[in-house]
Simulated assay, not measured.
Amino acid sequence: MQLVIEWVTNIILFLLFAVIIDFLLPSGTMQKYVKMAVGLMLVLVMLAPVLRLASVDPEQLIASALVHFSNGRAGEEAIKNQIEQQKKEIQASQRAYILKQMAVQLENDVNEELMEKYGLKADVNVYAKPGDDWRMPDDIKTIEVVLSKQKSAGSVEPVVIDTTKPPALPEGDASLAEEVRAFLAGRWEIDEDKIDVQFRGRE
Rank of each mutant, 00 (worst) to 15 (best):
V197R: 05
V56Q: 13
S93G: 00
V56M: 11
D123Y: 09
M136W: 11
S70E: 15
I12D: 02
V156E: 15
A65G: 03
K194F: 01
T164V: 14
L15D: 03
F14I: 02
K35L: 15
I83A: 15
L61F: 13
E6L: 12
P58W: 10
M136R: 10
N111Q: 02
L13F: 06
A153P: 07
V43P: 02
G131P: 03
L184M: 07
D132Y: 14
A78G: 11
V159C: 05
Q85D: 11
A153C: 11
L106V: 00
M46K: 06
Q105K: 13
L3H: 11
P166M: 14
S70H: 15
A92F: 05
I195G: 01
A153M: 15
L24Y: 07
Q198K: 11
D191N: 02
D196R: 15
E203I: 13
S70A: 13
E179I: 07
Y97I: 11
I90K: 15
F17A: 11
L147K: 07
I20M: 09
D191Y: 00
V145H: 08
P158G: 08
I140H: 02
E89N: 10
K88N: 05
N125R: 14
Q101T: 01
E179A: 12
I5F: 14
V43Y: 10
E76H: 04
E179V: 07
G154T: 02
E192R: 13
Q101E: 06
E113K: 15
S155N: 08
D123I: 10
L106Q: 00
N108T: 08
K80M: 08
L106D: 00
Y118W: 01
A37H: 05
L44W: 14
E59N: 08
A74G: 11
K129M: 07
L42S: 08
I21M: 08
F23E: 12
Q101G: 06
L106C: 00
P158S: 12
W134I: 09
P26G: 09
V34D: 03
L66T: 10
I143M: 14
S64N: 11
V145A: 07
N108Q: 12
N71P: 00
A37T: 14
A96K: 10
H68L: 12
T163I: 12
G72D: 04
E84M: 09
Q105C: 06
E157R: 11
V67F: 11
D139H: 10
M36K: 14
T9C: 03
L47W: 02
F183N: 01
E107G: 04
W7D: 05
E107F: 04
A54N: 09
M36F: 14
D109Y: 09
E107R: 12
N111P: 00
L40R: 09
